[in-house]
Design a protein around this nucleic acid. Sequence first.
DNA 1: GATGAATGAGGATTCATTCAT
DNA 2: CATGAATGAATCCTCATTCAT
Lengths: 228, 228, 228, 228
Amino acid sequence: MASIASDDWEGSPLPSMVNPALLRDTPATERGARRRSELVAAARKVFERSGYLDARLTDITKEAKCSTGSFYTYFKNKEEVFAAVLEVAQQDMLHPGMDRVPDSDDPYAVLEASNRAYLEAYRRNAKLMALLEQVANVDPTFRELRRRRGEAFIHRNARGIADLQKRGYADPDLDPMLASRALSSMVSRVAFSLFARSGSGREPVDFEQVVFTVTRIWANGLRFPGHA
Amino acid sequence: MASIASDDWEGSPLPSMVNPALLRDTPATERGARRRSELVAAARKVFERSGYLDARLTDITKEAKCSTGSFYTYFKNKEEVFAAVLEVAQQDMLHPGMDRVPDSDDPYAVLEASNRAYLEAYRRNAKLMALLEQVANVDPTFRELRRRRGEAFIHRNARGIADLQKRGYADPDLDPMLASRALSSMVSRVAFSLFARSGSGREPVDFEQVVFTVTRIWANGLRFPGHA
Amino acid sequence: MASIASDDWEGSPLPSMVNPALLRDTPATERGARRRSELVAAARKVFERSGYLDARLTDITKEAKCSTGSFYTYFKNKEEVFAAVLEVAQQDMLHPGMDRVPDSDDPYAVLEASNRAYLEAYRRNAKLMALLEQVANVDPTFRELRRRRGEAFIHRNARGIADLQKRGYADPDLDPMLASRALSSMVSRVAFSLFARSGSGREPVDFEQVVFTVTRIWANGLRFPGHA
Amino acid sequence: MASIASDDWEGSPLPSMVNPALLRDTPATERGARRRSELVAAARKVFERSGYLDARLTDITKEAKCSTGSFYTYFKNKEEVFAAVLEVAQQDMLHPGMDRVPDSDDPYAVLEASNRAYLEAYRRNAKLMALLEQVANVDPTFRELRRRRGEAFIHRNARGIADLQKRGYADPDLDPMLASRALSSMVSRVAFSLFARSGSGREPVDFEQVVFTVTRIWANGLRFPGHA
DNA sequence: GATGAATGAGGATTCATTCAT
DNA sequence: CATGAATGAATCCTCATTCAT
């Protein structure tokens, strides 16, 4: 039970996070590769600054100091650059500290480490996650992407829960799938509301306490044994 | 502890769900009132069909069988009709079955009734909720509206949790505010993912089981006593 | 046998020459109708001046002294204005002098009158015909339009030829359909090459001689009797 | 009277069908020659597939498996490749069976053989002919090319007709030039409408019957003697 | 000679909002 | 109050051609 959030895609088991149909061939020359990177970086900057909808293609090219045409050498449209931005971000979101998770027998410890890793990654990429949320609510392609990712997590966590139930470590009355959906949603949503939202007057939260809280509720919720 | 979800606005304590600044005076004549209603109904239909962004004002006037100009007699812009649509929907979202909630001493029963009422209302207005989600991610006004509503719920539920803790009915190690945020998020997000998303291949869920699951996890999560 | 040309649409039996799908509703107000007419007139002028491909929508609106947006109030795109231009032109192309055709028993006289009427109409609308030729070679919609018109004529003339054959007035060895195609093509193509082409160094032709020639060849070709 | 169609260029008396100004020097190396051929072949394929206007230069280079830059080594622009394509096609259009035409005294036999040869060549190169038609209606250079060719044919055939008239074999009332224009147009246009148009629901025609029909009408039209 | 990345002018189209009738 | 025509700023995208490598 190493991943814990739904509606998200951290720890994706797939080689590429985004629909490969949205990605085209790698540039042939090195100059091309460099230019492409510049565009992706510029796009991320612009997206994070202005949001997906308000980002104009010319903003991106201006930021990348290149012509409009060059943009179209590498991407078909805004959707496609955004996919590329996500693709790059995936490197960072990919269980970066998962190795630190003790493969111990203590389900609580595993859960906590897992949650911490997830929340850290989320916080690091908060703006991008907010962006994804925005885009998913606007572009069917990314809505579907988000949905599929979420379901994958829910299924994975559901298997973990079923396993715990079998071993007598979790409330047997709960439907694993539904419980997984509820708990996974909880984590991802807490992350979103605490990190992703550009807080108007949001007071900073104690990160460790967030980890503790979601982990504790998760454990309690399933009735992990031995946590008086 | 009668309300349970965050990021949402069911059970709003405020007289009007939406920023009053967005609402203008009631039309003088009765014909005016009727025309306004027709426009709001048309707007809701169009919004639900096409989404907020893709809805054109002319779609709405066409649906309402009136002229473009008339629209501006009653609303300043898209934002304002959307506020009016929400305003109307609030009638239905407002704890419609809250009366049925037994004001018993059993926190579990109260919680379950509360969750059921929330989820029922959510399901009834699923399309509109999805819409609000979409708009909130696009229009700062509604983003702020959603945020404030959510925080209000979280605060209310947090008070309930603190109270239970005081009475020895809930895990004293949890921070009431954070726990509330987590659990409230869980419910609203489960509702969103099950009801609001136009599921491509979503299999229908057993509504009662959803109620049971979120309630059970909530109770477990807080360690309600006496639920073997 | 009153019509004689193929690949063309003079004397169309249909109420509207152009695909009705390309035409939208009539403007509601009179001002609208006027504006629409102005745009159609402007479009015709621009098309004849610059050709279909080189005509920019802004040229048309500039010529009509109205804004870009107004264009789109009445037409969806260039294709649609062009259809409207054709629609208007049809009034003039429609057997304008057909009444003068003596309904005599003399097939030759009928044929000659028919050819004269056709060629006159063609000459009057020469620029537009050249335009249609150009557009048909570029836009599938109009290619199909031209084809259907042409075939209609060929069929009609084929019936006339078959009738003459039955009455012993025409070479019985000829296949009516193929003969019709050949002769109809001849007339329309002669008209095109003499009138429609913006002649660089074209010397003017004697119109009556053209009428005589195509009629004579047509009659000879079918072996009308009695024309020593 | 060996050639019979106008608006076309079969049987060209000129060494090169296209304006020599459009053709540049032969490549020096053999590799260069091969590359050029590949480009021409690719261009023809692309033009026939997409039409002249929709053909992008990159489509051609992609088809030829070479770089954009290489294209410009051999051609100045689209116009120039198209000229090269025509140049190559000319080999095939050149009266390939003209030798088989019996140089008999029977004008009808000569005419029939000539028509057959023309129609065969047209059918073989149908797509290219449709293309030329398209380009001629768009590009002044090729419009002029087509016109000049057509006029050359008309003149040649007019001389033939005048000769027949002198020998008492043809209707003396006809103006040779106009009659030639009409009859030549007939043949080329029949060929175009039967072979060049990608027929939506075009039923296949009996080729020999086409030859017979146009020949018979031509002969009748001029009043060849002895064809009861 | 070959390559393919870079350029950027140019045109179509949308739709919220105004205002004359 | 109702109507619906008029407006035009604002962007996206194409693709022939050039030129550095």
